[in-house]
Amino acid sequence: MSVKPRKKRSIETWDRKKIKAGERKRLLLKAGESFTGTGVHLPLMVWRGLEEGPVLGITAAVHGDEVNGTGAILKLIQDPPFELKRGALVLVPVVNIMGFERHSRYTPDRRDLNRTFPGSESGSLTGRLARVMMKEVVGRCDYIVDLHTAAVRRTNFPNVRADMADVDCARLAKAFGAEVIVNNAGPDGSFRREACKSGCPTIILEAGEVLKVESSVQEMTQRGLTHIMAELDMIDVTDDLRPDTAPHQMIVQSSSWVRAGSGGFLTFHVAPGDTVEKGQPVATNTGLLGKVLETIVSPHHGIVLGMTTMPAVSPGDPIVHIALPDTQKQFRSLEKSVDKIEDDALENQVRNHLATSITVVEHSVEEDGIEVNDTDDI
């Protein structure tokens, strides 16, 4: 990916407002207009440390219903676990403000903001919002962490996605401390891809569900952001702010969705964050009167990166998203590390918390013995 040389805009002045060293200032950035012709404004906070240093942007809700990151940024604003010594933070709790107000992933003109970057000053409503973000936020930051969740009716085990060929993106991704890093540059038109192309290394976190603020996800997000600030020497690390990380970290190059072969109602046998063997049952698909239609098995060794939370499925619906280790040896090492995680560790707290969105039972090969008429769909 080619990176454009750029001249970074000042962090000290926004819309003719001065931000002094050591100051936190709330700002409203004009992002468009509503159907009534009134202005739509993007709330953000600029927080400067006392000393010069890097500018880190933290953004959330590029998809307007993905508010786990919004909660994490608000917690960072209201109850920061550190004192910002060097550099500055640019905190944007909601990027897609128009989608957020409608509880929608998309903008009012039915576009996906995260496929519209770098945008255009004279384009669509969505394109104009993308352009404002590129100019006013990306244009002032040295690094960005963009916070996402799974799409509607899905949940994601916390994982970082980054272009690991970019040394600065790789530095951020490893510092965050998630168990899984997915190595890719992101789709065309995505915020992180275009931010990286403009010269601002950007990674994303995928964690949890839409329209929720989940406590364990919030805690893991805050821990990871603190790790990155420590790595960038923006904060002093004390005994109370020890940068503990996951017991292992696996970089994967690919992932695969396991899909339903037929319509039916699912009973799950795995949860987010579980390791799975090739051929292991991940779900049983039944009719509405309990007749087993199929046992869905994993075609790969790997770790469950995400899964549906909706048990009613149609043929071809995605069920379980599996991150694929490069080698069998890497998978066995991952399996052993997961087994050794302490019960009270944050990683296991997240696993247990995310599993509450679904019911997980052990797979049984026994027939239920109930007689039914010769009807295949019940």
Rank of each mutant, 00 (worst) to 15 (best):
A195P: 08
K291S: 13
H148L: 12
G64M: 11
E52L: 07
V182N: 02
T226N: 01
T238D: 00
L232C: 14
Q349L: 13
T327E: 01
E83A: 11
E136G: 08
W47I: 08
Q253N: 14
G208L: 09
K212M: 13
L29W: 12
D244N: 14
E367A: 14
V40G: 07
Q249S: 11
K278F: 05
F157G: 04
E209P: 06
I378H: 09
E214I: 15
V210Q: 12
G22E: 12
D368E: 09
P311I: 10
L205G: 01
R6H: 09
L76E: 07
G71L: 03
F331I: 02
S2P: 11
D146P: 11
D168F: 03
R223V: 02
E51D: 12
L147C: 04
I181N: 03
D65I: 02
Y143Q: 03
P5N: 05
L50M: 13
Q222A: 01
R171W: 04
V210N: 06
I19C: 01
L205R: 00
R153N: 14
T149Q: 01
G37Y: 15
E12P: 00
D233G: 08
E219D: 08
S262N: 03
S190E: 11
H269V: 09
L91V: 08
T126Q: 10
V210P: 05
L74N: 10
L91K: 04
R192V: 03
A230M: 01
V372F: 13
K291C: 02
G32E: 07
R351A: 05
L125G: 01
D339A: 15
L225N: 00
T221Y: 00
S256R: 07
S262M: 05
E219F: 00
A207L: 03
R153E: 15
A173E: 11
R111V: 05
S34Y: 10
